[in-house]
């Protein structure tokens, strides 16, 4: 696999595409570089959609010291929840503005967790993983979301519950989330092992390793 700099030799001067005009977004819409506005909500997954019943659903935080904290579905939805309205940015170039979610802040879930970890590996039903710094999961930046646009989150979009970390590319917002492993050292997740960026800030266009 090869990733890295654009293959064109004109890194500083873009190649003008003859006859291309494109469709400008209205100037008051601010999107990260390279993104376009999607009106629908595309689905992007590496494999089949897992169906997870809320009867069996469990969310677990494991610390680097081997301590375990878990929540059943009932326990999760009884926790104080927030309504979040946010823009989301997928690495496949679409962005969607003003999406509306409901979920539990990771600040609530991590409140009593004792840890010295700097990193988190988020784990999903179906085997998907993604990594991010623990500091990106706290201070009102991340939620376990279980409602979207006023309705239950459908399996296609990660239901019954998904991670929501909207300030990073959306693959970090793991669908079908089942837990978080806290780690002292960073460990690449599924897409990160396949060449995608470890951090994934859309405003710095960190799509692939080396960006």
């Amino acid at each position: 696999m090869a990733f890295g700099a654009p293959l064109s030799s004109t890194d500083t001067m873009p190649i003008v595409s003859p006859g291309f005009t494109g469709r400008r977004q209205s100037p008051d819409v601010q999107l990260p570089p390279g993104q376009y506005l999607a009106e629908d909500f595309p689905v992007l997954t590496a494999g089949p959609t897992p169906r997870v019943s809320t009867d069996r659903w469990q969310f677990t935080i494991n610390t680097e010291a081997g301590q375990r904290y878990d929540w059943s579905w009932q326990q999760l939805i009884e926790l104080p929840a927030e309504k979040i309205t946010t823009d989301i940015h997928c690495v496949t170039k679409w962005s969607k503005l003003g999406t509306r979610w409901k979920g539990v802040s990771l600040d609530v879930l991590l409140e009593d967790v004792e840890t010295a970890a700097d990193f988190a590996l988020v784990q999903s039903y179906g085997g998907y993983t993604t990594n991010l710094p623990l500091e990106d999961l706290i201070d009102g930046q991340a939620w376990i979301a279980y409602r979207y646009d006023g309705e239950e989150l459908t399996p296609e979009h990660g239901g019954p519950a998904r991670l929501l970390v909207p300030h990073l590319y959306f693959w970090k917002s793991a669908k079908w989330v089942r837990g978080i492993q806290l780690l002292l050292e960073d460990e690449p997740g599924f897409w990160e092992s396949a060449g995608y960026h470890d951090y994934g800030d859309p405003w710095r266009e960190q799509r692939y390793q080396g960006d």
Partner: peptide
């Protein structure tokens, strides 16, 4: 302008 190949 192209970038890739992408996807593993």
């Amino acid at each position: 302008e192209l970038r890739g190949p992408v996807g593993g």
